Simulated assay, not measured.
Amino acid sequence: MSHLSRTLPMKRAAHVYLVRDGHLLLVEERMDDGSIFYGLPGGKALPGETLGDAAVRQVLVETGLTVTDLMFVSLLEGELLTGTRNECYALFGRFTATFHGEIDPTDPEVVGVKWVPFAQVESLVRYGPPPEVEERNPLIWVPTRDFVQGQPRAYYPI
């Protein structure tokens, strides 16, 4: 089979940079191996759902906050996890937004929600195994690093 005829499943996801007083809101999730993973609120889009609608829905479930006035920040696009059982073509949108409400996650996988100073965000990121976990791919965190440094780009080819 030639490379051109290979069809990859599409993974579409949206995450939101929620900012308050130089802090970024991160969610804490427990991974299968018991470790704590810090990530941006957001997640996979459902079939037929826009990235914007996915962002609003996922942030509400993961944090309890209602987001409005989504502003596009960046898009990551490209093949991810090539050669693993989870290989896919990724379209990951990043947004900022206005938000209101109280922190009250209803997602059972979320064990905490934390405002983290910009300077500490990168120190919480864990890279490495298992390789199927795309959130631990360093490329996924480059846009966040750029965002907290005040230098986001609009497009990140993976």
Rank of each mutant, 00 (worst) to 15 (best):
M1A: 14
M1C: 08
M1N: 12
S2M: 07
S2A: 11
S5P: 00
S5T: 13
R6M: 14
T7G: 00
T7Y: 06
M10A: 14
A13Y: 01
A13H: 02
A14E: 00
H15E: 14
V16K: 08
V16Q: 06
Y17K: 06
L18G: 10
R20Y: 09
D21E: 15
D21A: 13
G22N: 07
H23D: 07
H23T: 10
L24P: 11
L25M: 08
L25Q: 07
V27P: 00
E29A: 14
E29W: 08
R30N: 01
D32M: 10
D32C: 02
D32N: 08
D33T: 12
S35A: 15
S35K: 15
I36H: 03
Y38H: 15
Y38T: 00
G42K: 08
G48V: 10
G48H: 09
E49V: 07
T50M: 01
G52T: 04
A55M: 06
A55L: 01
R57F: 11
V59Y: 09
V59M: 08
E62K: 14
T63Y: 03
G64E: 05
G64L: 05
T66W: 08
V67Q: 03
D69W: 04
D69G: 10
D69S: 13
M71N: 13
F72A: 09
V73P: 00
L75V: 01
L76G: 00
L76A: 06
E77G: 01
E77F: 04
E79L: 10
L81N: 12
G83V: 10
T84P: 06
T84G: 09
R85P: 00
N86C: 07
N86A: 13
N86D: 11
E87S: 06
E87P: 01
A90H: 02
L91D: 06
F92Q: 10
F92D: 07
F92S: 09
F92K: 09
G93F: 04
F95G: 05
T98Q: 13
F99Y: 14
H100F: 14
G101C: 02
E102K: 15
D104K: 12
P105M: 08
P105Y: 07
D107K: 07
D107F: 05
D107G: 06
E109F: 08
E109Y: 09
P117D: 10
P117E: 06
P117N: 05
V121N: 00
S123Y: 03
V125W: 03
R126Y: 01
Y127Q: 04
G128T: 09
G128K: 11
P130R: 03
P131C: 02
P131E: 14
E132P: 03
E134H: 11
P138L: 04
P138M: 03
L139P: 00
L139D: 08
W141E: 05
W141M: 05
T144P: 07
D146T: 02
F147L: 00
Q149D: 12
Y155G: 03
P157M: 02
I158D: 10
I158C: 13
I158K: 12
